[in-house]
Design a protein around this nucleic acid. Structure first.
Lengths: 154, 154
DNA sequence: AGATATTAAGACCTTTTTATCTTTTATTAT
DNA sequence: ATAATAAAAGATAAAAAGGTCTTAATATCT
């Protein structure tokens, strides 16, 4: 008698949540002049090691993160990557449905053919998008150092 | 080489999208003095018949929708149900993570122990919640009749 | 009153997608 | 050469989405 999604619907997929956390973690390390190894990242953001590895591979292919193999290798961000926004990360992993899609999942919902909540929902999406566009991964490093802001569960 | 969720992350689960659409559809029918059968609902909102049936069972158990068996039976909304908000529907199906949870999925994120995007994200969630609280299922019937507003794909 | 047709409720099964783990291969510094 | 590290392939697990079939309730028609 299990009918209903059982309660893990979040704004972003778990994959995407890990991706954002990892990007911020790597940004911090990069600013400290270090590269971040996968094990370190996994511990630092409380994620399964092999899962975040796979996610980072994808982010690497898409050019959002840089890496080097071998001893003292690891992940880091170049100048361009440091300027990426969280919106870029979200779009890379989850696509743009959260940022652009109809709230009721209707494919042909539009200005001229709106679903019942179209106009109200559009405002929210817009604000979410704006917030994510303005949030550059490189800008979270300061707060990580000087405040209580955190990336893991405890 | 399939690494990434690709491309069905939406604000609400599909189950939840169907639930909202169905509630609005049934509200309209009720206002017209009719009950809505499952087949009719499925066609009216473009959903798999047996899937929406299951969702409606759950909504019925939780008291968000009323039903009658037998000839001329079907689903309808009593006065209380007509006043339910979309937030009620979302919480019933998807839980309250979208409305209350941390944007990065961190369980212990809070005011005093905030994640990097906590404060910004909180604003968005608040606006989403407010919008959904204000949207009563009974209030969409007018627009369904007099405008181009729709509930199915085409 | 009893049979029958209609409709929702419920149990259970299958497929697809997301999340996670295991193992092997390719790079690169020392 | 070797040790450390990411890249890659692929298997497994869990959850969401969708489907089949049976049971229970109820109106209507004998």
């Amino acid at each position: 008698m299990l009918y209903i999604p059982l309660l893990r619907q979040t704004m972003f997929s778990k994959t995407c949540e890990y991706a954002i956390r990892a990007m911020i973690f790597i940004a911090r390390k990069t600013k400290e002049g270090q590269r971040a190894g996968i094990k370190e990242i996994a511990k630092g953001i409380d994620s399964p090691e092999h899962f975040i590895a796979k996610i980072l591979q994808e982010l690497g292919r898409k050019g959002l993160v840089q890496s080097m193999k071998g001893p003292n290798g690891g992940f880091y961000l170049d100048k361009t990557s440091m300027e990426r926004s969280l919106a870029d990360v979200v779009r890379t992993i989850d696509g743009d449905k959260v940022l652009r899609g109809c709230g009721l999942g209707l494919r042909y919902c539009s200005e001229t053919h709106p679903c019942p909540i179209h106009h109200e929902f559009k405002k929210i999406r817009g604000q979410l998008m704006k917030m994510l566009e303005n949030a550059k991964v490189g800008t979270f490093t300061a707060s990580l150092e000087k405040s209580k802001v955190f990336l893991k569960r405890s």
